[in-house]
């Protein structure tokens, strides 16, 4: 069946983090309100869960510095490392919704089943992209769902809505590909992007 994937236009990402916050607002990921929660209660690192974020890499030397912006989220891989590493998921039965992590057959979206997940965090280690995030309140792992609740209505029909990040992208850099061709996986990937052959992520990049 068809895989939904991402097209990220690297030239157009302005590094504004609007995708990050639109996702947080859509999915109500914490922190919800003041006071800011901190990891380990030490007031240094805020404790939150982000399904999408923007990687900002600086390089170069004055007067020719450079900064690149790459928006990053779950890539709903063809061979998800999270699923493979999950003790409560069968990689040979990956579409089974009773897995703690499963991959939908109809559109390739990879989901973490919150009723089954026990928070072992293997997937955090396995994912090359950092998509799974540990929620310290639920003690489980969650991640980008490709806004499946926006894409489909309660009868399972496509709605015409897009994921919150795609909808809001200020630079017009982030797009959905309805029929992602895994041959294009990792095409034009930026420097230091994981080798696409590892998990065959459903993402390709555009330049120029």
């Amino acid at each position: 069946m068809a895989q939904i994937g991402w097209l990220i236009d690297l030239d157009k990402c302005t590094g504004c983090d609007s995708c990050t916050i639109a996702c947080k607002s859509e999915n109500n990921t914490p922190p919800a309100a003041s006071p800011m929660p901190f990891k380990n209660g030490r007031g240094v690192l805020p404790d939150g869960v982000d399904y999408r974020w923007v990687v900002k890499k600086e390089s170069g030397i004055f007067p020719l510095p450079a900064v690149t912006f790459v928006t990053s989220a779950c890539n709903h891989c063809r061979h998800p490392a999270c699923l493979a590493s999950c003790p409560l998921a069968d990689i040979n039965d990956l579409h089974n919704e009773n897995n703690a992590i499963f991959k939908r057959e109809e559109d390739g979206i990879v989901l973490i089943n919150q009723d089954v997940c026990v928070g072992c965090r293997n997937c955090l280690q396995a994912c090359p992209y950092g998509a799974p995030q540990f929620n310290s309140a639920t003690a489980k792992v969650e991640k980008c769902t490709l806004c499946i609740h926006r894409l489909y209505d309660s009868d399972g029909r496509r709605t015409g809505f897009l994921p919150a990040c795609v909808t809001t992208c200020v630079g017009d850099a982030l797009h959905l590909i309805e029929n992602f061709d895994s041959v294009q996986s990792g095409r034009n990937a930026p420097e230091d992007f994981a080798d696409a052959e590892l998990t065959v992520p459903s993402v390709e990049f555009a330049v120029g």
Partner: peptide, 22 residues
């Protein structure tokens, strides 16, 4: 505020939520 917070606050207590929400 008490139920809408999410991740851990001080000593593993949930953080606070907004005034209104779900």
């Amino acid at each position: 505020v008490y139920r809408g917070g999410g991740v851990g606050g001080e000593e593993g207590k949930p953080g606070k939520g907004p005034l209104m929400g779900k």
